[in-house]
């Protein structure tokens, strides 16, 4: 990586293209904000024990959802179609190089996540959320969650057809939303389902986020273990199986 200019140009372009993509922004911003606002105002969802206001439960979970939507759904679908349309192949014949391409994609994900967090936190505070506690704990969790979900997204993008990635990423998004402790508390799930859910990265991330913003209690070590395992395993598997062409 001799030069930074190709990386900066790549990042700026991919960021601009992402922000221009209406359906991507709907998944990244529209759906999380809608869920947050709707279920904060319409108190129909079950809440974990000890939580009074719906927004106190929802806000950390919706932040976890934002990570999942950007790093798994948007990145996975976008990269899947870039592969399908031979964009990745064409870039392979330029001096950009893979390290700079991957760095640019991760930067775009982090920038969009920052934008999502700003809007979600603003909306949550407006709905009466009072975050407290060890918010710094959220930073490593967000990084690990981003790595885990980006790995899952790229695993699909690098092995499946673009349209299959599109369908599967959206299906996983809904499934993990329901099993991820984001809008339905984990302890409301039936026993075996809850055990399975606790092994998935969505629930691990949302539990740590909840704890960081302190409605919950301390996070068990095995929740961190699940998240970190996904954060290493999924990207490694994606790297090992990724087909550029």
């Amino acid at each position: 990586m001799r030069k930074i200019r190709p990386y900066l140009a790549q990042t700026a372009t991919e960021l601009r293209l992402s922000l221009r993509q209406g359906e991507q922004m709907l998944v990244s911003l529209g759906i999380p904000l809608l869920l947050l606002v709707f279920f904060s105002l319409v108190d129909v969802l079950p809440k974990p024990a000890g939580v009074e206001k719906p927004v106190d439960f929802l806000a950390p979970g919706i932040l976890a959802l934002a990570v999942m939507s950007t790093s798994m759904v948007s990145l996975g679908i976008g990269t899947g179609f870039e592969r399908h349309y031979h964009v990745l192949k064409r870039l392979g014949a330029t001096p950009l190089g893979r390290p700079r391409l991957i760095a640019a994609k991760l930067t775009v994900v982090l920038v969009i996540e920052a934008l999502q967090f700003a809007l979600i936190i603003l909306a949550a505070v407006a709905l009466g959320w009072h975050p407290s506690g060890r918010a710094t704990l959220a930073v490593p969790a967000i990084i690990a969650g981003t790595a885990a979900f980006a790995g899952i997204g790229l695993l699909m993008a690098g092995t499946l057809r673009g349209t299959v990635t599109l369908a599967l990423a959206n299906a996983l998004y809904i499934l993990l939303l329901l099993l991820g402790g984001m809008i339905v508390p984990l302890d409301k799930l039936p026993g075996p389902v809850q055990i399975t859910a606790e092994l998935l990265p969505a629930a691990a991330l949302s539990q740590i986020m909840a704890s960081a913003f302190d409605y919950g209690t301390s996070v068990p070590a095995n929740t961190w273990a699940v998240l970190v395992a996904w954060a290493f395993g999924a990207p490694l598997l994606a790297a090992a199986t990724f087909r550029w062409d």
Binding site: L17, R20, F81
Partner: peptide, 12 residues
Amino acid sequence: VMLQEGGVYSSI
């Protein structure tokens, strides 16, 4: 390089 087809971001 000019590939036989594609190679460009669809919304660019």
